[in-house]
């Protein structure tokens, strides 16, 4: 497939579907924004697509907790279809509200069992440490140890992009579990403190900023996530989720200040490549 079709799921309240579609288009994929109603009616099939992207927004107003109702829909209606997509090795990416829904549906960190009634969840995304919605640019490192095969080309690189969420604090049920997520390569992205000064615009755009771990410090780690975890993947490596918005940094002009590099487009290029 030269230009793989990528399904971008829209449910009531989704709002970064257009941003995600643009990133996919620039990365060489063909985005299809599909309303959940069309999937449910069977007008469109998930498995006619080469990847699934669940974008940001406030699905169903997040009235029952961020991504909670979308998670229920995913499990009740599309659990098996998503499991099939994953078993074919096709990438699934959840951004922000999409990440929250994947975690609440049990797809992240998995293992996912589509037919069980209730998910026994060990990790969650909950209210930011300061209790408030926060919008600001952050720096992420793609973990060198990440297990996901489609993230391999990005290992140890930096992405700069904004966060915009109120419930993005990654929490686990125990320190042992946090440790295990890291040792088994399930941690995909971590918040960083950039250490290089903004460079002059004369430098080539391939130059990459330097950084060190945020060590839980605000605002580099904007929400108090444990171990600076901004995103994770499942054991199969196909399913990936993160809170920040790499789809909002796919053009140079979107970057708010001086420093070059760290485009989010690389993430979508990796996804499209894996979907081929």
């Amino acid at each position: 497939m030269a230009q793989p079709p990528i399904l971008i799921l829209h449910s009531s309240g989704t709002n970064r579907d257009g941003d995600a579609a643009q990133a996919i288009r620039l990365a060489g994929g063909v985005p299809h924004i599909v309303h959940l109603n069309h999937l449910r009616r069977g007008d469109v099939q998930i498995n006619d697509h080469a990847a699934l992207l669940i974008p940001g927004g406030f699905s169903y107003a997040d009235a029952l907790g961020a991504g909670q109702r979308l998670a229920l829909e995913l499990r009740l209606w599309f659990g098996e279809a998503v499991a099939e997509l994953v078993s074919r090795g096709k990438p699934v990416l959840g951004i922000c509200n999409g990440f929250q829904a994947l975690v609440r549906a049990g797809l992240l960190p998995g293992p996912f069992e589509p037919n069980t009634h209730v998910v026994n969840r060990q990790v969650t995304l909950t209210e930011n440490a300061n209790g408030l919605f926060e919008c600001r640019w952050v720096t992420l490192r793609v973990e060198p140890t990440v297990r996901s095969s489609w993230l391999q080309p990005l290992k140890d690189t930096l992405i700069r992009c904004p966060v915009a969420h109120g419930e993005g604090r990654f929490v686990t049920s125990s320190d042992d579990l946090t440790q295990e997520l890291q040792t088994s390569g399930l941690v995909a992205f971590r918040y960083q403190t950039p250490t290089t000064q903004p460079t002059q615009p004369t430098q080539p755009t391939s130059a990459c900023p330097q950084s060190s771990d945020a060590r839980g410090l605000y605002p580099a780690n904007p929400n108090g996530s444990v171990a600076d975890i901004a995103g994770i993947c499942d054991r199969s490596g196909a399913v990936v989720g993160l809170m920040p918005h790499p789809e909002n940094h796919v053009f140079d002009w979107q970057r708010p200040h001086g420093a070059v590099g760290g485009s989010g487009l690389a993430l979508f290029e990796a996804l499209v490549e894996a979907a081929k």
């Binding site: 941003d19 919008c135 640019w137 789809e247 200040h257």
Partner: peptide, 22 residues
């Protein structure tokens, strides 16, 4: 201002707070 999303739609060029520390 940081409680408002000023990035969604991906069209923001000059935001409410600027500079390397924003």
């Amino acid at each position: 201002v940081r409680r408002y999303d000023h990035e969604v739609r991906g069209g923001s060029v000059v935001r409410p707070y600027v500079g390397q520390h924003g």
